[in-house]
Nucleic acid binder design. Structure first.
Lengths: 165, 165, 165, 165
DNA sequence: CGATAATCGAGACGGTACGTCGTGTCTTATC
DNA sequence: GATAAGACACGACGTACCGTCTCGATTATCG
């Protein structure tokens, strides 16, 4: 069931390789996955910027939703994040290798909006981005509720409304 | 490292019990944990209501943060949620046994505010609650960023600002 | 495989009886078998005596052969004797409950012949009987060689020849 | 109590070896014993031949008695033969690996005597050897009666007397 | 004839050993 | 000289039975 169904012996056998060769290059099963996952996952991150904050946010959150729920990489990500709950070292590795880059993309629409002057200079980017992507991750990892366009729309609208004041 | 360091044999030995007795009553290691966890976790949920939405939200989110980061039950919850990423059946069990109740408590401040007339009848409770608790879970499960009072304050203020319009 | 495939739980279940009821009356699995076996095994022993030593011996050894190789009781006997190699107490019980009676029957032709005066008074009955039945048991328990009429004839003839001198 | 007191786990532990290593090389507990037993048991078989049939037979039967009742290998042999009563495959293995060689030694005095001309060419070696060793095995495996020099002497004398005619 | 035991089936219990699987390390034989 | 193949010590798995121990339900005995 999940990661423990994926044995090192099976990986080696499937690769037509001795176990030792695996151990020579990776310290653990999760490291193998992390390496295999990071490359194609990072390539899927979109650095687009249309100049329209609402549009950018909706597109970005939609892409994030699709990554998490529909892509193979997203499935691996969930598996790794799951494993990381029991393994702080893995958690750190995921952050360094993947989450940091993903985070930059998450921040991009906000940062660009600040540069444009659409948002005030003193905006707390971190808190805002967490408020935008947090609900997405929550539904994926915890509640299992579906990520509908309406939900994404609601997140973005609440955010935009909150900064109108 | 986490759940696989907790063997059934150790559980049985520690309980002064034969392995078979564990297997007789629980189908898996996670079921044992789920049973042991649910009782004391649910008891920690607070149904308080002061009549002040902002105050209630901050208190509730603060309690949630403490549960997730500082309590034993929270640690078990993280481990279970982690395992659930590889195991849809476990995910479902967690929702039925625990998340559902937790969710009710999460919704309470909003529901009460609606009853009071502080929020409009047509408020989408689910989307709003996800937006409030989502960022908390995100930091705990994914980013590892700290749950400061300032962060909680920021979440609540953005929400309140968004509904002022 | 043999006796350890016959579990107490299976015996109890097959008899529609609680395990405790078995344990109340028998101390061990072999005791159950011993009881079940002794009755019908003893009833098969023939105390006939025709007055003709050769004829009696051949008939007796033939019967013994059939008992050991063709009857259900013989199969149980082999199983019990097998178990007894590892269990002196069982060995003793088998002797008291069964082998002793069997032995009397084995001795009968010789004893009768002595009474008749066909054999000298000082005949060592035990040694002679062992020499007669020993080869039979040897083939059954050890060598697996078949118990042909010719073999039985050979045993008897050698014995009769040996006492002619 | 015998073989079931000798667990695979104990064998492995005593050998400072993982259980798997045992299972890799032997299919069952009895196979382990058989291998361990055969080597030193075969080495104890004596191919001596003095040219005197009576002397050779007495010496051989005496050695056989000592092997069965006084040596460690004899104890293992009895345990294996016991187990073999419930396990035809084991019975066959014992015959191939051990009994066959033992049998050759058992036959030797008779065969040599025939070569010497002390016994007729048409002698039925198998039947005779069974008659000689059968009583020994019978006392060991079934009756438990002691193997005295007098008993062995009686066996040999009866045999020699029977061929005098 | 109804209360009171004794006996029984059922099966949970603390244990022990089973045979299997996967781990990470070490060795061999091949290319 | 690197590598596939796989043996090795180890430890947890989930299963099967062991012999002991409660449980009701069902009999049988006696008041």
């Amino acid at each position: 069931m999940g990661l423990q169904a994926l044995t090192i012996e099976a990986i080696a056998a499937r690769a037509g390789v001795g176990k030792q060769t695996i151990y020579r290059w990776w310290a653990s099963k999760t490291d193998v996955l992390l390496d295999a996952f990071v490359d194609d996952a990072l390539s899927g991150i979109d650095p687009q910027d249309s100049g329209n904050l609402e549009k950018d946010l909706r597109r970005h959150l939609t892409n994030l939703s699709k990554f998490l729920t529909q892509s193979d990489a997203g499935a691996v990500f969930k598996a790794l994040i799951g494993q990381a709950q029991n393994d702080p070292q893995l958690a750190e590795k995921i952050r360094v290798r993947f989450t940091a880059s993903q985070r930059q993309a998450d921040c991009l629409p906000i940062v660009k909006a600040i540069e444009r002057g659409d948002l005030p200079r003193k905006t707390d980017v971190d808190a805002i981005v967490d408020s935008l992507v947090g609900p997405i991750y929550y539904r994926v990892l915890v509640s299992g509720a579906p990520l509908t366009p309406a939900f994404i729309k609601s997140i973005v609208e609440h955010f935009l409304a909150s900064i109108k004041t």
